[in-house]
């Protein structure tokens, strides 16, 4: 649950644009962010609990959050025909897969989800500002390209370290593009002054564990 409404607890996947118009459940406009960098495993688990579970798989290359014995547990099982709607390359690899893997990937059908996942990796602390007036992740060529080959690698070699390091590099690059405050460690921060100047929302408070709470200005997202 990278983002959570502080009012009602509604959680949102990384990069969700739902928050832009306030919480759909309670209308709240304050969200806390839980960075994935410090605790990638639990975040992956959290992500698996949300409807956008497959994003964690796409971004980390770990399809292992899915238990092979319960391939359809708690998630939609898309019919094979819908596979590859946003990811044709992956569909070609179906032959040698377990049902769990294909189910896991079959959720990765939305190109917007792939894009969002690619831009928000577990190492990222830039996610806090994803709902800013920065260019939307879909405008960035890199994230749309990378998750696809990674999803293929997931099917064939789930633990390929090369893919992991490539993703790390991508995350670093995206961090450089997006983030306004980088939390190096508790008490150590790097600030991107231009980003801070450009952003719409106020930062209310940094937390010791690396989260921070932001306040969204009234009328934000209306324009």
């Amino acid at each position: 649950m990278p983002h959570q409404c502080t009012n009602c607890g509604h959680t949102f996947p990384d990069g969700s644009k739902e928050m832009l118009s306030g919480c759909p459940d309670c209308g709240g406009n304050k969200f806390q962010f839980r960075p994935a960098g410090s605790n990638a495993d639990s975040v992956a688990d959290d992500a698996a609990d949300t409807t956008a579970s497959s994003k964690a798989d796409a971004s980390t290359g770990e399809s292992v959050t899915i238990d092979p014995e319960t391939p359809s547990a708690g998630r939609q099982t898309s019919p094979p025909e819908t596979e590859g709607v946003g990811d044709g390359e992956v569909a070609q690899n179906d032959g040698a897969e377990s049902p769990a893997q294909s189910t896991a990937r079959s959720d990765v059908v939305s190109s917007s989800e792939i894009t969002a996942a690619g831009s928000m990796g577990p190492q990222s602390t830039a996610d806090e500002q994803s709902p800013t007036d920065q260019p939307a992740p879909t405008d960035q060529p890199a994230p749309t390209d990378t998750p696809e080959p990674d999803a293929e690698a997931t099917a064939d070699t789930p633990d390929d370290p090369t893919e992991e390091s490539n993703l790390d590099e991508l995350r670093k690059e995206l961090n450089n593009q997006f983030e306004s405050i980088r939390i190096v460690s508790p008490g150590q921060y790097e600030l991107n002054l231009m980003e801070l100047y450009d952003r719409d929302e106020y930062i209310i408070s940094l937390r010791e564990d690396g989260r921070y709470v932001i306040e969204v200005p009234d009328g934000w997202g209306d324009s």
């Binding site: 150590q188 100047y197 952003r199 930062i203 209310i204 408070s205 010791e208």
Partner: peptide, 20 residues
Amino acid sequence: AIRRSREATEGVAEAMHWLR
């Protein structure tokens, strides 16, 4: 020191926002 550092970072963010 860590708390001061955190507050200072928040302060810079606020100052930049005000500048705008």
